[in-house]
């Protein structure tokens, strides 16, 4: 194994752990915040001000970080019945094209999402003092990671180190 491969493997492991922690953390945080909001409203009789706005922003953050994680673990929902029965050479080509499209879409989210996030710098959520750009950054972050993961895979497919079938989620047909 050369240095580059070791680097890629290490980055991958570290990144997966980070994404996992964010996804589990955000799901747990939403569970706690929403229950606190209910408790405050019905038991303390004192509604929290961030009740709707903050959870919605956290869900959006979860969405884009989670989308990168699902790309990494091949768990996005898809229709692969046709891809599965293609001859291997064609599978390789179609999978490579799919990866190019995914990487391209990730890059668009990263670039335009980044511009949008930057335009929100200095603004805060209405109901609570939290920087809007921090939440908005989840989309460029997730988009960039999707591009990164797909590019590495594309190299793997091109060099024959990755079997296209290994990139499919559990079969659905």
């Amino acid at each position: 194994m050369n240095l580059l491969e070791v680097l890629i493997l290490k980055t991958d492991r570290w990144l997966s752990a980070l994404l996992d922690a964010i996804v589990v953390g955000l799901a747990g945080l939403l569970l706690i915040l929403l229950n606190w909001a209910v408790f405050a409203r019905f038991v303390l009789n004192d509604s929290v001000s961030w009740g709707e706005e903050l959870p919605a922003y956290l869900l959006a953050t979860l969405t884009f970080v989670g989308a990168a994680y699902l790309t990494r673990t091949n768990e996005h929902l898809g229709f692969d019945a046709v891809l599965r029965v293609m001859p291997p050479a064609m599978q390789r080509i179609v999978t490579a094209l799919n990866l190019v499209l995914m990487a391209g879409f990730g890059a668009l989210l990263a670039w335009y999402g980044g511009l949008a996030a930057a335009s929100f710098v200095g603004r805060s959520l209405i109901s609570i003092d939290a920087p809007m750009a921090l939440f908005r950054a989840a989309m460029p972050f997730g988009g960039a990671l999707i591009t990164l993961v797909c590019m590495v895979r594309l190299v793997g497919i091109a060099t024959g180190r990755i079997d296209p079938m290994d990139l499919l989620p559990e079969s659905d047909a």
Partner: peptide, 26 residues
């Protein structure tokens, strides 16, 4: 204008109602 791609997907995910889906899944 292509910058729309930087705004609308986030707006779609930024949704209080759909937090319910996560909670019912849990």
């Amino acid at each position: 204008v292509p910058q729309i791609m930087g705004l609308i997907p986030f707006g779609g995910a930024n949704n209080y109602l759909l937090v319910a889906a996560l909670l019912f899944m849990i």
